[in-house]
Structures are given as C-alpha cells and as structure tokens.
Design a protein around this nucleic acid. Structure first.
Length: 556
RNA sequence: CGGGGCGUAGCGCAGUCUGGUAGCGCACUUGGUUCGGGACCAAGGAGUCGGAGGUUCAAAUCCUCUCGCCCCGACCA
C-alpha cells in the first residue's frame, strides 16, 4: 500500500476527519475522506488555512460541506425510511418562522386556509393528461387497507385490496379541483382563494436533506377566478409575495421569471418562479406560481354561470414553497463555521452564555443573565418579541460558544463577573469572525439590539447580492458559454465537480432543440426568462433574434 | 436506473488484502487539577462490526444475496 496515508505512523501531522470541531491551533494539517477507504484518501495539508468548524469547507467539497452543516447545526437527519428526513427542533423552528410570516402574507392578500386529504383517488390524477405524465413516475400508491399476520410477519391482506388505489398526494390540484367544482356555481362564488399547509410525497431517485426528499412540507395555494386576466394577476401577485419574502425575510435575492415550456409545471399554461443563487453558483428554484388556464377547471369541471347567464370554466392558479427554503437558506448563508441564520427567521435572535467558572460568582452571574433575558424579551424585532436563549448548561464555555456558532444564532452574549462589574455584555455577531467580539454597555446593547439584528439581516442580503453579481455575467458567444460552464479537469472522474460557472445571461431564441442540446452537453438549463423589459439581441446558438436575455445555470 | 465508493460505540475512523472472536480520537460518566473559555490527568460506561444466507474448528475479515448512505451521470413539477 505504497503512498498510503497513515496517521500517527511516522508522520508528523495529525489527521482530523469530520470531527465536530477543528483543533484550536491555526496552521493545522487537515484532511478529509473522499471516496475509497484505501489509497484514494485525500489529505489536505495547509498551513495558511484557518481552522474551521465545518470540515470539509465549501471550496473543498460543497455537497459534503452542506451535509455537515445540517448535522452540525442540528437541523435534520435521515430517517429509517429511505429518502425521508426527520426535521429536528432547530430546523423545524426555522420552518415554523417561515410559515408564520408567509401565512400572514397570504391572509393579507385575501387567502384563507383549508385542508384537503392526503390520499387522492388514482382516477383523479388521470384527469389532466400532462399532469398524469408529469407525476405518474414518482407516486406512492396505497393498494390495501389492512394487514394480516403470515408466518410471523405482517403482510397486506389480499382480501383488503382497494377497488381503486389511492395515491399519496404529490400535489393537490386534482382533489382540490374536485372540491372547487362543488363549491363554485356562480360568478358570485369567485374568486376562491384557498391555501393549505401540508406534506406531499414524490418518490425521488436521489434525495438530499431539505433540498429534495421523498416527503416534504409545503404550502400550496389554489385559486379559481372568473377571468383569465384575474387569474394571471393572482399568479403574478403571489410570485411577488414569494420574492418579497425571500429578500426581506430570508435575505436571499431572487430573480423573478417565467419557465420555458420544458420546465413548466405539468398541466400549467405558464409557470413562474423565483430563482436564487447558491454559494456553489448553482440556481435553486425557491418558489413557483402557476397560471393553470382552464386546464384543471375543464378536467375537474369547475364551472360557473357568469353575470350574463353563460356557463363557463373557471381560471385557476396554484403556487407553493416548501421546506426546500430551509435548504436554500443554508446554501445561501452558511459558512465554513456552520449555519448563519437570517435574524428575521432565526429560531433564537440572541443567546446568552453565562461565564460561571467560580462557584461563588455563579448565582450572581445567572441572576444577571436571567434579568437581561427578561429585559431583552421586552424588545421587538421583525414584528414580534425578541427570541432569547439562555444557555446555562454545565458545559465548558468554548464548547457552548461553538455549538451556537454552528447553529447560526445572530448574536452571542458572553457574560461573566467582569462584564457585570462594568454593566456590559461581550457581544459576538455571527456575520463576523468567531473571535471578533466587542464589549458593549448593557443599556446600549438592549436599546440597539433590534437595529443590530436588522444590520446583520441587511449585511447578509448585501453579501448574497454581491456574490450573485460577482458570478453573473452576460455571455454573447457559444464558445464563451461553453467555456463558462465547463469545470476544470478532474483527475478522478468520480470526484465532486469543482465549483465553477454561475448565472449566464444570454440571448435565446427559444429553440427547444437548442435547450436540449445545451442540457445534454453541459447540464445547464434556462432557469427563467426574467420578468420585465429587456434589450433585444441575437441568440448566440442560432443567430436568430431574441427578445431578451434569459438566465442560464446549473441547478438543484 | 447506470458507474464508483462506503456502512465497525453518539460522531469521525483503524482493523478486512494475509480469518483466531474488537481498537483509537472526540463525545459521555465519575474523581481530581484547571478556568474569560473549543483544557489537563486518572478511572469508567457504551459496539450481536448494516441485514440475511453460505464456506470454515473459527468470519468485522472470504463468498452470495440484500438494505441504506454518499459521489459522478440520468431524472427532477
């Protein structure tokens, strides 16, 4: 086994692998596993690189970094059920915060919540041709309703076979359409503006925590309107709600645009989306809004008498965002020390870490911290009381500090006897380096905490915007386009693809064949056709005229 | 679904090639020393080596099958 790296045997460096923290010393030898157990291990030796809490780093191995952040921040883990995740309290709290805010936005735009069944009769899915084709391949199907013991095991009782199989909803257009058909008789029943918070199941081949799992949580809005115009307005309105939410709450800049025919929702007339750039420069669709025309109304029989007594099909829309948004926040904001929560959606805004080394100081410090916690909770931020954690667990200080850094809490307060004597707090901001901490008077901290959180929120959005700008460029020739999206040569064909490319803004004549060719060649697709006016130009692939530049990128 | 890799204590791994019945670091528990800090010393708890068959006196190790996870593709509403 020549050349095999053997830690602790004749080498002077120490091997650290995926441990939950790096050594304190800078200039450490770091290594991480990649691929095989033997011979293919890659040891990264770097004296210049600072130690990070997450190994590997983003630039070392982005996909692995993502998984390590999810683990280190205690957001979620894989379940015994293939492709399904358990969302842990810290991750779920982010989703709850998103839910609360979005729910408010939906209500403010006139929508009401309802709940529809998990199970959809198979025949419902068959009603809309494109819908069938789009979803058939990834449905979970229920065929029996009872188990019987057989040879000491439980098996579906053959006698309990369902006459019509039930599909676990991959989305609810069909069953909601069925109900809408009953609810709508007259133009006076319209518009119908419904949202539901639910889980859905799509039997995905390859899954990733939060980004693509077999079961996930989402909201799906479904509306029915008397006119096409009204439905289109609704479609765009909700797209705008998503874009606002992404920017203002998730600190994630997004491009609003329309999908090409190939990327359209099965059964939709047009699909709109918000697209965000992750730190590996890939695009992630963070939300979609569909104008469904009369397709589903016709399939489900949603009809009404208009004000002239004419029977018409309604015009419908649907729109949704999912727990994927949690994944997008990780990929947008997390760094090599773990999660970085946008303050407005953080499960906790502030964590107080009492420094209680000497027993005689302990009670005094804790009393001070509890009082400060109570005072901070009186403060308002982002439309609610400040969320404050007091971590008085009997752990060593450094351990606790790093746990909270990895979880991404915006503000850390370390408070010991010396701070109390000065009536001040020692503040660390998650958007700054872990050791970059400052002493601030208690009164001043409390008075400015909301502003401080807002400044972190703003800094995160600005940073994400700058990153996107840095990796977005106009591309005007096919050669440049191909060069932009071709990764550096890899010695090992099975190694992760290095980070490269970004968003290419290129003209496009709309040829489906061209789009397909580029996808086959580079794995790059049109993420969206941005809304708004654009300058006309020439498609670099066909030489045909193009109305405006579209966003090309690799994507999740 | 194709190609590659990996499943050994909570986490990260060694041990597998050359079968002899399990080890290291961190975490955990206890005691002590430390203490504005991701400490140190000592003692200790924790694993039917992913699962099922098979070969063998003997299997983490060899063979077959299977499940799961990860990477590269394919697919992706």
């Amino acid at each position: 086994m020549a050349g095999r790296y053997q830690p602790g045997r004749g080498t002077t460096c120490t091997l650290y692998r995926y441990r939950d923290r790096p050594p304190r010393a800078t200039g450490v030898a770091r290594a991480f596993r990649r691929g095989g157990r033997r011979g293919t291990r890659v040891a990264i030796m770097s004296s210049a690189k600072a130690a990070t809490a997450i190994v590997p780093t983003r630039s070392d191995d982005y996909a692995e970094w993502y998984q390590q952040v999810v683990k280190a921040a205690d957001l979620a883990e894989n379940s015994p059920v293939r492709g399904c995740m358990v969302i842990k309290p810290w991750g779920y709290a982010m989703w709850e915060n998103m839910q609360r805010v979005l729910d408010g936005m939906f209500k403010d735009t006139g929508h009401v919540n309802a709940y529809f069944p998990l199970f959809i009769p198979l025949s419902f899915l068959e009603k809309e041709a494109a819908h069938v084709e789009g979803f058939a391949k990834e449905c979970a199907v229920v065929t029996h309703h009872r188990l019987v013991a057989k040879d000491g095991k439980l098996v579906p009782d053959p006698a309990s076979q369902l006459e019509e199989p039930l599909v676990v909803r991959p989305t609810s257009e069909t069953i909601i359409g069925e109900m809408f058909a009953k609810w709508v008789q007259s133009y006076r029943d319209l518009p119908l503006l419904i949202n539901q918070w639910a889980n859905v199941v799509r039997w995905e081949m390859r899954t990733r925590l939060f980004l693509r799992t077999a079961e996930f949580l989402w909201q799906e809005g479904h509306t029915a309107h008397a006119t096409a115009d009204e439905a289109v307005v609704e479609t765009m309105k909700m797209l705008g709600v998503y874009a606002d939410f992404a920017e203002q709450w998730m600190a994630t800049p997004v491009i609003q645009g329309e999908k090409t025919a190939g990327e359209r929702f099965p059964g939709a007339v047009s699909t709109y989306c918000i697209e965000a750039m992750m730190q590996d420069r890939k695009a992630l669709q963070a939300g979609t809004s569909h104008f469904l025309g009369q397709n589903f109304a016709k399939a489900s029989g949603i009809q009404f008498l208009d004000d002239k007594g004419v029977l018409q099909h309604a015009w419908t829309t649907s729109w949704g965002v999912s727990t994927r948004l949690v994944g997008s926040m990780i990929m947008t904001h997390a760094d090599d020390d773990g999660m970085v929560c946008p303050p407005k959606l953080a499960p906790a805004h502030v964590v107080i870490l009492p420094v209680t080394h000497k027993p005689e100081d302990r009670q005094r410090v804790l009393d001070y911290c509890h009082a400060l916690k109570a005072e901070l909770r009186q403060q308002q931020f982002a439309g609610g009381p400040l969320r404050v954690e007091l971590d008085d667990r009997d752990l060593r200080g450094g351990d606790k500090v790093w746990q909270w850094i990895k979880k991404g809490v915006p503000l850390r307060l370390e408070i010991g006897p010396r701070d109390i004597d000065k009536d001040s707090v020692f503040v660390g901001r998650r958007d700054k380096a872990p050791k970059d901490k400052t002493s601030v008077g208690r009164g001043e901290f409390v008075a400015t905490v909301a502003a401080t959180l807002q400044s972190i929120q703003d800094a995160m959005l600005a940073r994400a915007k700058a990153f996107r700008a840095e990796h977005t460029r106009d591309v005007d020739s096919k050669a440049d386009f191909y060069a932009y999206f071709t990764p550096p040569k890899q010695k090992d064909p099975n190694a992760p693809t290095p980070i490269h490319g970004g968003f290419a803004m290129a003209h496009f004549s709309g040829d489906v064949a061209v789009e397909k060719q580029i996808k086959d060649d580079l794995g790059v697709t049109v993420r969206c056709i941005p809304l708004g006016e654009g300058e006309a130009g020439t498609c670099p692939f066909t030489g045909k005229p193009s109305a405006k530049r579209v966003v090309w990128a690799k994507s999740y």
